[in-house]
Amino acid sequence: MGSSMMICPRCGVEMNQHAEKLLYEAEAAGAAQVDPYLGGIVEQMHRCPGCGAGASRPEITH
């Protein structure tokens, strides 16, 4: 993973990254976030072990 943990906005505890989703439609969000090898944005999925809240953010590749 190589990135910092997300903090749950409800509980303030560290969230668990459980998935990555490749988004092809998200290219408009910024070319800097597009993985040059995968051709899309890798969105990281996180869930809170305390309350179950979900959050996501794009993986920073460069």
Partner: peptide, 10 residues
């Protein structure tokens, strides 16, 4: 899957 989402890291 809830356990996995919340407890098992990628």
């Amino acid at each position: 899957l809830r356990y996995g989402r919340e407890q098992v890291a990628l």
